[in-house]
Design a protein around this nucleic acid. Structure first.
Lengths: 200, 200
DNA sequence: CACTTTGTTACCCAAACGGGTAAAACCATG
DNA sequence: CATGGTTTTACCCGTTTGGGTAACAAAGTG
């Protein structure tokens, strides 16, 4: 792994742990096991570094989410696929959701400005379009509200990730049990969502 | 409103906004529109003040949640009631969930120690017991996993609260629209949960 | 060896921090 | 005016902060 990679990785960890503004160049250097001088040799300023990290992180998650609805599978299989892909992504990046939510609440305008600057956008258009088509085809409940489908999906998937300590403690799970629970949950969540969407 | 009340209120706001450790006596005094001297006249230390605020806040939410399952209504009505009460509570205390989640992730052991010290405990026992009874009576799906019911419920209710800026922005809502969405959601969430729990 | 890239060390330095305190002032009530 | 509860002001003070830089060292390269 190159020094630059180590820096990017350390900066990502730091940013997700502490938030954008509270991220410290000192701790990034420490995490990357280099010194502050070298850090500034690779990235001329904190802004330059974090902009890059922010961009990389978000385009990764949005790409994953975007690809989900581009396959040509049946709609309900796509839901299942979306749940699986999104869950897997968050399992790999467990600190991301809390970071987004915190930043968004701390200063919504600044957060959106950063999103804009990084040129990243959440890809929910695909889901919304297919829901409309599904209604026409009679697959989808006519009175279903699209915005709630999105909220249901994200809430059901995200909560056990951001509440990991609570989940483990309340159910007295070790790490392996917890991972198993997250794994089991993909099917459970898919079923709940599809059940809710499906025309009766 | 007495000075002490103003202090408690200001301290709660500060604690929920900044977190337990990052809460500052200075800003609490400012928020309460008094000076630091007076603050220490009422509460001899930061620890004394925040312990009290923590205790008050949590016992309030846990009492609300606990009472839900003590009525003698039918089980599915209780679910609906629980969803309504919990939703209403979070609508009144929108910053609480993110505070809990952040504290829990920052330092789980310290957070639990504070809970213990304040003598507050989440009351999910009632729900779990009734689920078991429901299975025996044939009301509830035999293969339902209780831990997921809790996760589903919290996730579905909490997410739109902690993601308020996103919800408003993505759906282009003003504040009134957003509140309406939260209100509408109570019914939607109840139906999803009951549908999932009910024996087929 | 000459030159470039990569890496280290030490230091800058004003500014804010931040919980806590002492002493004085203000203000009711009797 | 005296008494006690309330409120203000000013100050403490060592510590940390924190992005950024300059000078020096090491290592790779042709």
């Amino acid at each position: 792994m190159t020094t630059e990679d180590k820096i990017i990785e350390a900066a990502e960890t730091e940013m997700l742990e502490c938030g954008y503004d509270a991220a410290r160049m000192r701790s990034i250097a420490e995490k990357a096991e280099i010194n502050k001088g070298l850090l500034h040799y690779y990235f001329k300023s904190k802004e330059a570094l974090l902009t890059r990290v922010f961009q990389k992180t978000f385009s990764e998650i949005f790409k994953t989410l975007g690809e989900v609805f581009e396959s040509d599978k049946p709609f309900f299989e796509k839901i299942e696929l979306a749940v699986n892909q999104y869950s897997n992504f968050l399992i790999r990046h467990p600190r991301l959701p809390l970071f987004i939510i915190s930043e968004m609440n701390r200063d919504p305008a600044k957060h959106r400005a950063r999103m804009k600057k990084a040129g990243v956008n959440p890809p929910f258009g695909g889901l919304l379009k297919e829901l409309e088509e599904g209604k026409k085809k009679g697959l989808v409940r006519k009175d279903l509200k699209a915005e709630h489908v999105v909220l249901n999906m994200i809430g059901l998937i995200m909560f056990p990730i951001i509440a990991k300590p609570m989940v483990m403690f309340m159910n007295d799970l070790n790490l392996a049990d917890y991972k198993q629970l997250l794994h089991d949950r993909k099917k459970i969540v898919s079923e709940i969502l599809i059940n809710d969407i499906k025309a009766k």
